[in-house]
Computed example of a mutant assay.
Amino acid sequence: MEVWIGRNGERHGPYQEEQVREWLRSGQLSPDDLGWREGLADWQPLSVLFPQDKPAPAPSPNSPPPLQQRANAVDFDYASFWQRFGAWVIDLIILIIPSLIAMYAFDGLEAYKHLLEQIQNGADMTAAMRTYAQATEAASVASLVITYLYYVFFEASKWQATPGKLALRLRVTDLHGQRITLGRSAARNVVRLSAAIFGLIPLICYLAITWTQRKQGLHDLWAGTYVLNGTAQEQPPQRPSREHGHFNA
């Protein structure tokens, strides 16, 4: 079981339960510090979560607790290249449906039939493809807009993920591990949209994941985002806040 810790208005973790118990017994964590683990509706004092683990006398001021040492270095579980690529493939399959609807609504299917007829009749291939591209321009634009809005709204939603990412238990966050705003999601997906226009997905967005330290694609670097393992529903319900010298989550 993993436990998140709330201290000084900040959220840290997650840590293994036995590690938290050990810190409680050694006095490196206070019973008044808040904790949260999956299944809880809200944050609870550690004294409530682990009533049998009594703290020892407070450690020396010269020995700061591990939690303070790591306050500025939260451990994130970054999604790998193949996880993200798999999520993209799932989303691509889902988006085929609205794309076909747009194609039908803007007479794209008729344009495709006409293209096949021209090929069968031995027409010039270059001219036939140019005619087809012009005939399906409206359908292509509609498909791009649908794809863009799909990513923008799903990644800024309470799920923090598209259906493809949800299927692989991934979520999109800002650099602090929090839910991104609609504006940040729009900026993130401008790069995706641009790449789609020039036919570079997944090349331009995803290859950077393989060499960047935090497995960020070009769109992540642009917007200041991460893609992490674990769904938003598996995270603490809210960020701890401090009021009147103690936590009140």
Score class of each variant (00 low, 15 high):
E10T: 10
V20P: 14
N62V: 15
I209Q: 02
L193R: 04
D42T: 05
E110K: 12
W159Y: 15
I94Q: 07
H244R: 11
I90R: 14
P59C: 09
Y148E: 09
L166S: 06
M129G: 08
Y150F: 15
W43P: 03
W88D: 04
G217F: 02
S99K: 10
K113S: 12
L193T: 03
H12W: 06
H176V: 02
L144F: 14
F198G: 00
A249V: 11
P236W: 00
L166W: 02
A102E: 11
A111R: 12
Q118P: 09
A208M: 04
G27H: 00
A249Q: 11
A208G: 04
F76H: 13
G9S: 02
Q83F: 13
D33W: 07
N62R: 14
A58C: 00
Y78C: 06
G177K: 01
A156W: 06
H244Y: 10
G230K: 03
Y112K: 13
L109A: 13
R11G: 12
P57T: 11
R214D: 00
V145T: 05
I94A: 10
A128G: 06
Q213M: 04
P64G: 04
W211A: 03
H246P: 09
F106I: 06
D33L: 05
L92E: 15
L170R: 05
M1K: 12
L67S: 15
R130G: 14
W43N: 05
A161Y: 02
R188T: 02
T136S: 08
I119W: 07
S63H: 06
R188C: 01
W4H: 05
P55C: 12
Y132C: 01
G39A: 05
P236G: 01
W36H: 12
Y148C: 08
L218Y: 08
L116T: 13
S60T: 07
G224P: 03
S80F: 09
R37P: 07
K54C: 10
H114M: 15
V190D: 02
N72E: 14
V89T: 09
V89L: 11
S241H: 14
S26P: 04
V89P: 07
Y151P: 09
R171N: 05
Q238G: 13
A138H: 10
A41M: 04
D42Y: 00
R70F: 10
R84P: 03
E22F: 08
A71V: 08
A105Q: 15
G108R: 13
G199K: 03
I201Q: 06
E18Q: 12
L115Q: 05
Q83N: 12
R214C: 03
P65S: 08
D33T: 08
E234I: 02
L193I: 03
A133N: 15
M125P: 08
L193F: 07
A161W: 06
A133W: 14
H244G: 06
G86D: 10
W159M: 15
K165L: 03
F50H: 11
Y226D: 03
Q216D: 03
G199Q: 02
W159L: 15
A196D: 11
A156E: 12
S143V: 07
T231E: 09
Y132W: 10
G13P: 08
G183Y: 00
L46W: 01
V89E: 10
R184I: 05
W88K: 09
L168W: 09
R11I: 02
A56G: 15
A79M: 13
D91Q: 12
D32I: 05
G9D: 04
